[in-house]
């Protein structure tokens, strides 16, 4: 019995050390592409929490498997022996039902709060910009619904958005399913024929980021890439004005 207790203590120590190393390693890995939206923060943080919870679970299972093999592997002379006829232990079974349930429950609540946070609309409705995103085999185009010339929204082949302002994307498809994804923003949604889907992000870092189609859409799926350009507000306004003038010129000529 004394020896058994010592073994369990040893396993616990090994488990804690392995978990600590595992968590440290998992957190040091550079998992995500550079964050470029307000939404990315809470998502990346949720990821870290999930890693911290996951590593000990895996370590627990692995340590028990390895120690079982080490301690109870058949020794010479034991070839025809059996283990003790233990059929169960209600207390243990209650423990390993309840604890995972509690962990799961708290993760679910936390994930719900993050979801609520990242999908929240800005307090003032006019603080938000609308961009219509259209997918078709095998390209995207973007329309600025708030800026119309002759009743038509400004249209662009590349995506330009201002820094620091909430943007609501209305996503549609002209043919098959596509998926509008900017990995640096962390958000994605399918473009579905027949309906309009939405998500919002607040880009918070100036730069150019890939727009990726994430839903298999046929031959050119792998090459359905464009660029999302996040500009400082002033530069964005200048870009928009230029587009407006070009559109006006096209409309009048």
């Amino acid at each position: 019995m004394e020896r058994g207790k010592r073994t369990v203590t040893e396993m616990a120590v090994v488990g804690v050390i392995a978990s600590a190393i595992g968590i440290a390693a998992a957190l040091l890995i550079n998992w995500f592409p550079a964050s470029a939206s307000k939404q990315a923060g809470p998502i990346d943080q949720l990821w870290d929490v999930l890693l911290i919870v996951s590593v000990p679970v895996f370590v627990l299972v692995t340590v028990i498997v390895l120690y079982s093999v080490k301690l109870f592997r058949v020794r010479p002379g034991q070839e025809l022996m059996d283990g003790p006829p233990v059929h169960g232990n209600t207390r243990l079974e209650v423990i390993w039902t309840t604890i995972p349930a509690l962990i799961i429950a708290s993760l679910v609540v936390y994930a719900y709060l993050v979801l609520h946070d990242i999908e929240k609309a800005p307090a003032a409705a006019n603080a938000e910009m609308h961009v219509k995103v259209t997918g078709r085999q095998f390209t995207w185009y973007f329309e600025y619904e708030d800026t119309k010339v002759a009743g038509k929204p400004i249209r662009s082949a590349q995506l330009y958005v201002p820094e620091g302002k909430s943007v609501k994307f209305d996503v549609v498809s002209e043919d098959v399913l596509h998926d509008f994804w900017v990995p640096n923003w962390r958000m994605k949604i399918d473009a579905v024929p027949g309906i309009t889907t939405h998500y919002r992000v607040t880009p918070d870092k100036v730069g150019s980021y890939p727009v990726v189609c994430a839903e298999l859409c046929g031959l050119g799926h792998a090459f359905m890439r464009q660029t999302a350009n996040v500009l400082p507000q002033a530069e964005f306004d200048a870009w928009l004005t230029k587009q407006q003038q070009a559109a006006q010129k096209a409309a009048t000529s």
Binding site: F32, P42, I43, L46, W47, L50, S54, V57, F58, V61, T62, V65, V69, I104, L107, V108, A111, Y112, V114, L115, I118, D179, W181, P183, R186, M187, K188, A214, E215
Partner: peptide
């Protein structure tokens, strides 16, 4: 035994995927 350890990993990534905010980023990847 290989199953026990590897399936645990598959189960863990399953729970991670259940978390909607993470799934939004990693689905279809």
């Amino acid at each position: 035994l290989g199953f026990l350890t590897m399936f645990t990993l598959g189960g863990i990534s399953g729970v991670i995927l259940a978390m909607i905010p993470i799934d939004i980023h990693v689905s279809d990847t």
